[in-house]
């Protein structure tokens, strides 16, 4: 999942970005409203963590402009203002959630997960595809009841595919939602990770779950083997 952090207080932003990256998210960061708006409009973010008191363009205006442009990103407002009016104003302008500073990292992660579930219209925290279970809260996967050992990035890739199950996902989509701008944009990075993921979840004897659509992308789901090319 790709997250944009817009926060002007540098020490907080630094820790936030580090924590989210370690949790397996692709993270972009901005220190003011202008940069934040630019990044939000140029990338496909699943969640935007937005501070309200920002230099150049304030958080409320950033939110308004994003909603005017029909951005689908879910916005979590982060602010030191805690009055009811502030909350109402933020939520009315199209924010999806509200977190008052100071907050714990665990709570922030839980809220981000909830926003991701909402974005992909997921009711349960566990996604089930055939005998594959993807637990988005515990951030682990099981195949036929047996846990699969995945790195943070591998899990992020699997989670993204699982959230879009039974749908073809292009390499660009995967690139945009799983990797942040810091990673080098080599086109075969996605293929390498898909290969590794396959190796872990499709061990011998188990049916294939990740399917390749030549020229289109990948698909996670139960499939008749027809049209499969590898």
């Amino acid at each position: 999942m790709r997250i944009l952090v817009v926060e002007d207080y540098a020490p907080l932003r630094k820790s936030l970005v580090q924590g989210l990256r370690e949790a397996g998210y692709a993270v972009d960061e901005a220190g003011d409203g202008e940069a934040g708006l630019w990044l939000a409009q140029s990338g496909e973010h699943d969640v935007i963590i937005l501070d309200l008191m920002l230099p150049k363009i304030d958080g409320m205006t950033v939110l308004q402009r994003l909603r005017d442009k029909k951005s689908t990103a879910h916005v979590l407002i982060l602010t030191a203002k805690d009055t009811e009016q502030d909350k109402i104003k933020g939520l009315d302008r199209g924010a999806d959630d509200y977190l008052v500073k100071p907050f714990s990292f665990a709570e922030l992660l839980a809220r981000v997960r909830a926003l991701v579930r909402r974005k992909y219209e997921l009711k349960s925290t566990v996604i089930q595809i055939a005998d594959l279970e993807v637990d988005t809260t515990a951030r682990m996967a099981r195949r036929a009841g047996k846990p699969i050992d995945l790195s943070g990035r591998e899990f992020a890739l699997l989670e993204y595919l699982a959230l879009n199950r039974q749908r073809i996902i292009s390499r660009t989509d995967i690139w945009q939602h799983v990797y942040d701008f810091n990673a080098s944009p080599e086109s075969n990075v996605v293929d390498v990770y898909i290969g590794r993921l396959r190796g872990k979840i499709e061990r011998t004897g188990l049916p294939r779950l990740i399917h390749t659509r030549r020229g289109q992308g990948y698909l996670l789901g139960e499939m008749e083997t027809a049209g499969e090319a590898e």
Binding site: E22, A80, V100
Partner: peptide, 25 residues
């Protein structure tokens, strides 16, 4: 008061976040 709260909460949030992230692994 709101400004005081904001000014006090922002560095507090920074400290809390830094400690939380540091302790997460």
């Amino acid at each position: 008061t709101a400004d005081v709260a904001h000014e006090l909460r922002t560095p507090l949030a920074g400290i809390k976040m830094t400690l939380d992230v540091c302790r997460s692994r």
